[in-house]
Design a protein around this nucleic acid. Structure first.
Lengths: 178, 178
DNA sequence: GTCTGCATGTAACTGGTTACATGATTAT
DNA sequence: ATAATCATGTAACCAGTTACATGCAGAC
């Protein structure tokens, strides 16, 4: 149950409305924990009831009003508790791996095309992460605090995506049957 | 919706009961698509109704009887269709990344311990995959067919787990504050 | 007598996705 | 005109987890 906590982390960095959180989950923190606006609104409501966040109604001109959420004292306690709590290491769950495993029961050419598609998608993601790292953290050695933490998470994304690209390439080579 | 297809792949390799499938999902194919027995029984029932598999009641001595499932013609068609169908590339969803991102709002020492725990778990998983690769595929260059496909999937696991280990180590170094 | 393995299931719940719904403002 | 952005939600559904339930055989 980490969406609550991902929202707490995001709101602790900066308060915001459900809509603004949705934008953030389309980028940054959402690269590592995706969520749709429906889910975010539902969970925000639950968190409000639990007292982890509080909201202020903010009227706007030319735009619809919004409800701005911020982390309460209880929310900060909960966030600290959760960060220290041991969790399960990520488990791989990869549809493509299942397809490769079943390659003998399908069309090899189609599967190769699929692997190439995944390789390209991961390469694009990797390029994006590298661009973000270069732009936002040009001097990694000098980082500390939240900027360092954000950089480290981005490094994890770069590591994961470059691993996928390498693996897809290896699979393609092996399936080419040259 | 890939559990159906993971089961089809597994049953296409060898027929088996729900219980036997559960054992397989504790190893091999389950390393890349985990499932519990409850889920497997439920999905097998649905697949039977859909005509993708057929079952035979097999009486046993000294053990409870079992229902052995095998892939039907319709199931083989469905499996081939699914393998050729484009799917979504895996998305990273990592609780640990969220915790690191929120490090400023928690206890750093506890977080370091948590990262070290994850590093150890991934290192263990990596060692297991390497052991399996050495044992089952001692001559990777000579592989073809299903054995090659199984090896390639295992290579993906090795790549992913070694990526995690490297990343955790990098994070620990950066958070040591030396 | 207690635990492990074999074997199959039901029921309740949680988390996440997809579709539907509304309505104003601004840019093309 | 039409699409995109801002803003918030409901409802139905699907997938997956946890807990509960049964019962025999064989090993320690």
């Amino acid at each position: 149950m980490a969406l609550e906590h991902a929202i707490l982390v995001s709101l602790a960095e900066r308060e915001g409305s459900g809509y603004e959180l949705t934008r953030r989950f389309d980028r940054s923190i959402g690269f590592f924990w995706r969520a749709t606006h429906q889910q975010i609104y539902r969970v925000l409501k639950r968190m409000d009831e639990a007292g982890w966040v509080s909201s202020v109604h903010v009227p706007q001109e030319g735009k619809p009003d919004k409800k701005v959420y911020s982390v309460s004292a209880a929310g900060r306690v909960e966030l600290e508790r959760w960060i220290a709590e041991p969790g399960e290491p990520v488990e791989v769950r990869d549809e493509l791996a299942v397809k490769i495993r079943g390659a003998a029961h399908g069309d090899l050419a189609a599967l190769r095309a699929e692997v190439a598609r995944h390789r390209d998608a991961h390469a694009e993601r990797l390029a994006l992460y590298r661009r973000l790292a270069d732009k936002d953290f040009p001097e990694p050695g000098a980082l500390s605090g939240t900027a360092l933490h954000q950089y480290l998470v981005l490094r994890g994304g770069i590591s994961a995506e470059s691993g996928f690209v390498t693996w897809c390439t290896e699979v393609l080579d092996a399936l080419e049957g040259r």
